[in-house]
Design a protein around this nucleic acid. Structure first.
Length: 215
DNA sequence: AACTCGGGGCA
DNA sequence: TGCCCAGAGTT
């Protein structure tokens, strides 16, 4: 793990999502939109979106169809537009128009699951957390930080044990970057991988992919 | 546990 | 052109 932390720190010394600088409300919306969709697409859409909508009331001031149209370049946009309006209604009615800081409150919001809540508490409210998405899950299992059949929650628990608490948030971002650009689901760059000595798959991944396909 | 949403990225 | 994906809700 020490080797991993050092190397990934060198690879991504300043790793952070572009979402970091946003306020809690915009961060929540942005992360909700990012489900099953690349950050790049979300960033393109939110440039105009956050100019048009600044407060929960702004999202409720337009018909659902208009909001759907405004985020139509994002996958699952019909669901997400609905989630956003329901979420804004709850923020206004139950949280004085603000995003709640407690993880438990966040996951009650529509469209906000464990992953989104972790990102919000860690990036908006400074609470160390590791949000396990498919990238983090894949990288963690390949590098042997978790077992291949571990659930997302089990992966999260194991990473929290392995990584010092003060490094959770930044390491999470580095894991995302590593998974996105190097340890990709398809065509990972194993030939030049600095983590090769840790990897449980490596060149065997082709065989694993083949087995998975045969099922 | 399986199914659904869905346009964009990439081979 | 077809497959996969920076999740979460529903049944």
């Amino acid at each position: 793990m020490d080797h991993f932390l050092r190397v990934i720190g060198e690879m991504f010394p300043d790793a952070h999502c572009e979402l970091n600088h946003r306020n809690p409300f915009e961060l929540t919306i942005a992360v909700l939109l990012s489900a099953q969709c690349t950050d790049e697409t979300v960033n393109k859409v939110t440039v105009d979106l956050f100019q048009k909508y600044q407060t929960p009331a702004d999202y409720l001031a337009v018909p659902l169809e208009e909001l759907q149209h405004d985020i139509r370049r994002i996958g699952l946009f019909r669901n997400k537009a609905m989630f956003i309006q329901k979420l804004c209604r709850i923020l206004i009615d139950e949280h004085d128009g603000e995003v709640p800081e407690k993880h438990e409150q966040l996951t009650k919001l529509p469209g906000v699951g464990r992953k989104t809540a972790n990102v919000v508490v860690s990036n908006a409210f400074g609470v160390p957390a590791i949000a396990v998405d498919t990238h983090v899950e894949r990288v963690s299992k390949r590098l042997g930080f978790a077992k291949s059949d571990d659930s997302v929650l089990e992966v999260e628990k194991k990473l929290m044990k392995l990584i010092p608490r003060e490094l959770w948030t930044e390491t999470h971002h580095r894991l995302i970057f590593f998974g996105r650009y190097h340890c990709k689901a398809q065509n990972p760059q194993c030939e030049v991988c600095p983590m090769a000595e840790l990897c449980k798959e490596g060149k065997g991944r082709m065989k694993l992919a083949l087995n998975r396909k045969a099922k």
